[in-house]
Nucleic acid binder design. Structure first.
Lengths: 199, 199
DNA sequence: CGGCTAACTGGCCGACCGGTCAATTGGGCG
DNA sequence: CGCCCAATTGACCGGTCGGCCAGTTAGCCG
């Protein structure tokens, strides 16, 4: 990286955060060293301690930053929508799937976070799922979706099906019979949307 | 742990593997030390090196053991079945879901493995999914399932929906609106099975 | 201009890491 | 019994870890 012409604490923090985000998400908290992060962000190890306290503090800051980006993006999409009908649900699935496709690091970040039992994103996630579930509930009451399933489970089902797809995509990329991202999405939507049609 | 009365290489290996499995799966490869594993399995660090070469060798052996258990169990279930109809698919979902519920460490093992980009289980997984997809294809040809979806995607969809549920279960255990394992499974099956009904 | 504070550096520390090696022990086999 | 080899031990190694601290530098404000 190019050196900053002048001292800028905010810029320095951002550069450290970006380098740490990449590496923590790619290889995991324990496998990344402070020395490596210092070199990658063009500062000294001591400076990272100065700004973030210790390694855990840096990791927390990385997660907070990434979660905030994710949360704001998702919430914006959720609130942009109009009437709660079947098409809205379909659209939400597509948007979520596309978001994950374009932000593979987010999937990995959530995976690491869940593995280490960190619950710092629980409330954020709960709120987003709650908003989605409310839309499903409205569509159920409008007779647009079958109403004998828990709206929260509807949202969770498609989140799970999308998230796990990208969590394992390198793994099954070239299996026989496995299609592309878009083909999987199409087939999932066929099953999911017909499975939710009212009687 | 109690000490072995007599020297038994096979038993020693098994005890090391078990202690390593627990800890690697709970906290990840990089966060576990050889010293800790030695103490936990009641042997010296040198003995672990004697039996498994180095830390990576032990991790590989742990994965190999766990994958073999998983693979044999799943294959047995897949081959026990009778005619390929809709009910068989439903039953496969239930069996897979129950297996993950009873073996939460397996979910974590796969998650770690995927995160670190290890493809050692790719062929095993591909074979199991292939077997399942073949059953789906048979049911499609028998007119028991809709035939305008890729059979591999059908299997992948339910695997993803089940796996990710358990990968995040601690995370959403007490969210408002979220039901129990069985309630989620019921709702997923409602959506999934109706979504796959032939026209 | 001068001083104060925060940004930033380099060197150092004790702890602990994975791994090695020579020595010891014990069980099985001729 | 006595040999032999694998199982097992404990001491030790060089390297690296996260963190600390005393000192330096640059911008900002009065």
């Amino acid at each position: 990286m190019t050196e900053p012409a002048t001292r800028d604490a905010e810029l320095t923090r951002a550069r450290i955060l970006e380098a740490a985000f990449e590496r923590f998400v790619d290889r995991g908290f324990a496998a990344v060293t402070m020395r490596e992060l210092a070199e990658a962000s063009g500062v000294t190890k001591s400076l990272i301690h100065h700004h973030f306290g210790n390694k855990e503090g840096l990791w927390d800051a990385v997660k907070e930053m990434a979660f905030a980006r994710y949360y704001l993006g998702q919430k914006e999409e959720l609130e942009r929508e109009g009437d709660a009908d079947a098409n809205l649900l379909r659209n939400s699935v597509v948007l979520y799937f596309r978001f994950l496709a374009e932000n593979p690091r987010v999937v990995r970040l959530f995976t690491w976070t869940h593995l280490e039992g960190d619950s710092s994103c629980t409330h954020m996630d709960a709120e987003l799922v709650g908003l989605g579930a409310e839309r499903v509930r409205q569509a159920q009451q409008a007779g647009q979706l079958r109403d004998d399933v828990n709206p929260t489970h509807v949202v969770t089902t498609f989140i799970n099906a999308c998230t796990q797809w990208f969590a394992t995509c390198e793994h099954h990329a070239d299996w026989p019979g496995m299609g592309s991202d878009e083909e999987y999405l199409d087939d999932f939507l066929k099953i999911f949307m017909r499975g939710l049609q009212p009687d």
